[in-house]
Amino acid sequence: MASMTIRNIDEQLKSRLRVQAAHHGRSMEDEARDILRAALSTRTETAGQSLIDSIRSRISPLGGVDLTLPARETIQDRVDLGA
């Protein structure tokens, strides 16, 4: 197994990790390992998808919205400012 050292962690973040680890009855190291495992395992679901496909797959279960689009107006002639 590899080991890793994480430096410059905000004290508030470290405190939250300590409390969460105690709540789950494990060490801070085990808690951090579980958080990393969970965060990185959800990433594989969207691997290989384009950004728009990834967004669409997350939004589409929420349903769509029917928009009423206003009628397009004809393009007006350009004004000649050179005269």
Rank of each mutant, 00 (worst) to 15 (best):
H24A: 14
V65L: 09
A47K: 13
E73H: 09
A71T: 12
D10M: 04
I9S: 04
L67G: 00
A39V: 02
Q20H: 06
I55D: 02
G63F: 07
L13V: 15
R72W: 01
E73I: 10
S50T: 15
L40P: 01
S41C: 05
R18N: 10
A47G: 06
R78C: 02
A32R: 04
D10R: 05
A21P: 08
A32H: 07
A38Y: 06
D80Q: 09
R43P: 00
M28T: 14
Q76S: 12
R56V: 11
D66T: 13
M4R: 11
I6P: 01
P61I: 10
N8R: 11
A47W: 07
H24M: 08
I35Q: 05
G64L: 00
D66K: 10
G63S: 11
I55W: 03
D77C: 00
M1T: 10
G64D: 00
R37G: 04
G64A: 00
I9W: 04
T68A: 04
R33W: 02
H23W: 11
T68N: 06
L13R: 02
G64I: 02
P70W: 00
P70V: 03
I35M: 03
L36S: 05
M4C: 09
P70M: 05
T46N: 13
S3Q: 12
I59E: 04
M4E: 05
S57R: 10
A22D: 15
T46W: 07
R16N: 11
